[in-house]
Amino acid sequence: MKFSIYRYDPEKDSQPRMQDYDIELQPSDRMLLDALVRIKAADDSLSLRRSCREGVCGSDAMNINGKNGLACVTPLAGLKEPVTLRPLPGLPVIRDLIVDMTQFFKQYHSVKPYLVNNEPVPEKERLQTPAERAELDGLYECILCACCSTACPSFWWNPDKFVGPAGLLQAYRFLADTRDQATSERLDNLEDPYRLFRCHSIMNCVDVCPKGLNPTRAIGKIKDLMVKRAV
């Protein structure tokens, strides 16, 4: 199978280049990551992140034939050849398929992604009905792979000012949690021409999310909460 892979080692390369590989696959190679492991066995200088190989750790996000996805859950069957692999767009490249995710995590941290509840800690669990808990479905499952934010034109233009779909999905995860008491502070934190309102519902995030989540819907709900508290 033929691959064309983005290569860049700042120690050796003055600029990035595309490198072609033609490798023989084994019947057990089902996913793109299997092929990448095979390529790396032949050329150990190819650098990429990977860990769980089942789509839950979020390490091996990359741009696959023009679309962001996780290598470990992208079936080889159906990929057009040569399979063109590039690092996630819009973030600085450290080496090969490895990007610097500092800006991405900075935005995630900026939404205070933790439960805030200042009441005395109860002896038992804080109660939550199954329906209230169901409000968190489609939100808490995010694996922070950055496929969505790095597919978002608004994030490309303003990665320092726009929180981006991944961060906003988590902002809503805590707004939607009946145990959280910081609704007003959370909305204040996002009331800004850039942080929230740079989302123009382009929906690239929804298109690429490997977990099938919908950041655009969550962003819409945050906007609804803003409107509600304004009236």
Binding site: Y114, L115, N117, V121, P122, E123, K124, E125, R126, L127, Q128, T129, P130, E132, R133, L136, Y140, F174, D177, R179, D180
Partner: peptide
Amino acid sequence: VLELEHYGMPFDRNDNGTV
């Protein structure tokens, strides 16, 4: 486990609201 719940862990719930 209860501490984890207090930290915000999204446990599944029973009808009476418990984990």
